[in-house]
């Protein structure tokens, strides 16, 4: 561990990131430019989230890392190892024991508390990017609150599919001002964006940091006659029987058999050890 500065980054870089985080918290939903560094992992593996975590961690922290809800995927394991090695901190897979949680594309099922910090890995921070490719234009649109194009996109969803088909990275309006991309979390998670914990968003390749202070008003964009719906697969978890958790679909064989399991592995394991059983509990390990 002594081979690295605490939490890998040098102090001046951490100060620059910390200043950006503070601006982000002062202007919720606004994307603060920052001088993203090369990290010892490829873009798309959470370089933004890792830099924000590195600037946030203290030696007393317990870190949890999830990738699509799972603690045991390559991305999550390697980031946990990275901070174990460079910051010497304790890691955990339990949501309730973590003080800092870095996440790729999910919010844990268990409610977070005021002492926790949720760090998101963000691929494309600009919600208007696929509607307007020029940064100069999207800057202007944010400054003028010109968000009509986003509503047109949602309207086109309705005219083509009969419903708002956007199912992840569902745009939200923050504190009545900025339209924000909540990173590609499923829209099932959108209502949880108003929470007791501090939420920080880091986009490494795109060099942006943004943030949500606790209890910030976050509203998913919708229409009066087509209200926002936090949808999920209409099943229960086949391992723990949970009815209200976000589910992954797993193909079991080539005869059309499939199962649905909680995407949040810690939530599912806790329920199973508490004795909850789903349709296939015991049959599949």
């Amino acid at each position: 561990m002594s081979d690295y500065n605490f939490a890998y980054l040098d102090e001046q870089t951490k100060r620059m990131i910390r200043r950006a985080i503070l601006k982000g918290l002062a202007i919720p939903g606004y994307q603060v430019p920052f001088a993203s560094r090369e990290m010892p992992m490829p873009y798309g593996w959470g370089t933004g989230g890792v830099q924000v975590s590195a600037a946030t961690l203290t030696p007393e922290d317990t870190l949890k890392v999830i990738d699509q809800g799972a603690d045991d995927t390559t991305n999550a394991v390697s980031i946990r190892k990275f901070f174990e090695n460079t910051a010497g901190i304790v890691t955990t897979e339990e949501t309730t024991k973590a003080s800092v949680i870095q996440t790729r594309h999910r919010i844990p099922e268990t409610d977070l508390n005021e002492d926790q910090i949720l760090v998101y890995q963000v691929p494309i921070p600009e919600p208007l990017r696929f509607l307007e490719p020029r940064e100069t234009e999207t800057r202007k649109m944010h400054s003028l609150q010109e968000y009509g194009l986003m509503h047109v996109k949602l309207y086109e969803d309705i005219s083509q599919h009969g419903a708002i088909a956007t199912s992840y990275a569902y745009p939200v309006k923050v504190a009545g001002r900025y339209v924000m991309d909540p990173s590609p979390i499923p829209k099932f998670d959108n209502p949880k964006l108003t929470m007791a914990a501090i939420q920080l968003f880091g986009a490494g390749r795109e060099q942006r940091i943004y943030a949500l202070p606790p209890y910030t008003e976050v509203v998913s964009l919708d229409f009066d006659d087509y209200p926002f719906e936090a949808s999920k697969a209409a099943h229960t978890c086949d391992l723990c029987g949970a009815e209200h958790s976000y589910l992954d679909e797993v193909i079991l064989d080539d005869e059309g058999n499939r199962m649905f399991v909680c995407s949040d592995t810690d939530f599912c394991a806790k329920r199973q050890s508490a004795g909850h059983k789903g349709r296939l509990a015991g049959e599949v390990a």
Partner: peptide
Amino acid sequence: DPAVDAARAFRTVMSVLAR
């Protein structure tokens, strides 16, 4: 201990600005 003290101080600063 600059790296560690600054990290702890920043968490306090972030907490009061966020709340």
